[in-house]
């Protein structure tokens, strides 16, 4: 028997009614923006950017915008004071590994540590390789 992969079909030609979820996630409500219907004057933007004092935008034609943004700033101010809940730091520390992470450095970037004994071993290895190579070349020439 094959599964019916069409989840909203009932298999008899009828369509299953989708449940309406009025509590759609807020962040899921992104909508394409058309041309903004509320153009803000450059001077007001400059004030909002902190480049101009409030007195420079306190003119009749912008007073509505200024009042609006001062009202919005009441909530933005509250958001600026929000703190990480106290338990979060503990949660993070519990979750991070107990030991320092191992660095995965490629061999050619690793630091070379040369001790007297390792120098001797390296020299002996090089000598042996050189002797073997010379012997091979001489045998080939003859």
């Amino acid at each position: 028997m094959l599964d019916d992969l069409q989840s909203d079909g009932l298999g008899d030609g009828r369509k299953r009614e989708r449940p309406v979820n009025p509590e759609r996630p807020l962040a899921d409500r992104e909508v394409p923006l058309g041309p903004p219907s509320s153009a803000i004057a450059d001077t007001v933007h400059s004030w909002l950017d902190g480049d101009l004092p409030e007195s420079s935008v306190r003119r009749a034609e912008w007073s509505r915008d200024v009042d609006f943004w001062k009202r919005m700033n009441e909530d933005l101010e509250r958001r600026r004071r929000m703190r990480t809940p106290a338990h979060v730091q503990g949660r993070i520390m519990e979750a991070i590994p107990q030991h320092a992470p191992q660095m995965s450095t490629p061999w050619w970037r690793r630091e070379l540590v040369l001790t007297p004994s390792s120098a001797l071993v390296a020299a002996a290895t090089l000598l042996a390789v050189a002797v073997a190579a010379t012997a091979a070349v001489l045998r080939f020439v003859r």
Partner: peptide, 9 residues
């Protein structure tokens, strides 16, 4: 800003 103002003003 303009979009927010359009939505909330």
């Amino acid at each position: 800003r303009e979009a927010l103002q359009a939505l909330l003003e």
